[in-house]
Amino acid sequence: MGDSSVRQLIDTVAWVLIENGRILCARPRGKDAFFIPGGKREGTETDVQTLVREIAEELTVELAPDSAVHVGTYEAPVADGHDTVVRMACYTAEYRGVLTASSEIEALAWFGLGERDLVPPVDRLLFDDLAAAGSLR
């Protein structure tokens, strides 16, 4: 009771797509922030199963599960959260199809390091690592 160490964890998986030093971000309908595309696990889904389903729902492309490579897992408090932490497992993966914002997504954008402040705290950790690796400019 009253244990302040108890925290809520939001377990998410994200797709890292980088082209020309910029990373694909999406703004869900009804939200004012951009996020790295992906979403929450359902039931007993694996990371890759979650990723394939979420990206199909959000961006209408088909990820190749066998091509998925884990690039890092990050944790940070949600922007306005008290004891809520987001864990984001990030993967690259090849895709088939044309990137298109689905009905869930209001806008797509390619962000460089200069847009770091437009994404949530957990996404910024990935931005920093990608910039340090020279992938994000």
Rank of each mutant, 00 (worst) to 15 (best):
G81W: 03
D117E: 15
R41W: 08
A133L: 03
H82N: 09
R87V: 07
L99D: 11
V6R: 05
G39F: 06
F34H: 15
R22P: 01
D129N: 07
G38L: 00
T84W: 13
E62Y: 10
P37Y: 00
A109D: 03
V78R: 14
T50Y: 04
G72D: 02
F127L: 09
Y95E: 07
A107K: 15
G38F: 00
V98H: 09
D117Y: 04
R29Y: 02
L108V: 01
A26K: 07
V78Q: 13
T100Y: 02
T92G: 08
D11Y: 08
D129W: 06
D3V: 08
P121C: 05
S4M: 08
A133W: 04
A93H: 03
V6I: 14
V16E: 10
G72I: 05
D123C: 12
E106A: 15
L126P: 07
R27L: 12
F35P: 05
T100A: 00
E62H: 11
E57R: 02
A26V: 13
S102V: 08
D123R: 02
V71E: 07
A107D: 15
E54S: 07
Y95I: 09
Y95R: 14
E57L: 13
G39I: 08
E106D: 15
P65H: 00
A64F: 14
P120K: 14
E57G: 02
P120A: 13
G2F: 04
A76N: 03
H70T: 08
R87W: 04
R137N: 05
A93C: 01
A93W: 00
T100W: 01
I105W: 04
Y95H: 15
C90E: 10
S5K: 10
F34K: 08
R22E: 14
V86G: 02
Y95K: 14
R41K: 14
L17K: 10
A109F: 02
G38K: 00
T100R: 06
L59R: 05
R27N: 09
W15M: 05
I36Q: 02
G112M: 09
A33H: 13
L63G: 00
A68P: 06
A89G: 07
V13F: 11
V16G: 05
H70V: 04
G38T: 00
V98R: 11
A107S: 15
V16M: 11
G81S: 12
P65M: 00
D123N: 08
A26H: 03
P121V: 06
S4I: 08
E45Q: 15
P65L: 00
F111K: 06
S5W: 04
E45W: 12
V48L: 06
A133E: 11
E57A: 05
A26P: 01
G39N: 02
P65I: 01
R22V: 12
A107R: 12
E115N: 03
D129H: 12
S102H: 04
G39H: 01
A64L: 15
G81A: 14
R41M: 05
T50A: 13
T84S: 15
A89R: 14
Y95A: 12
G97Q: 05
T12S: 08
A89I: 06
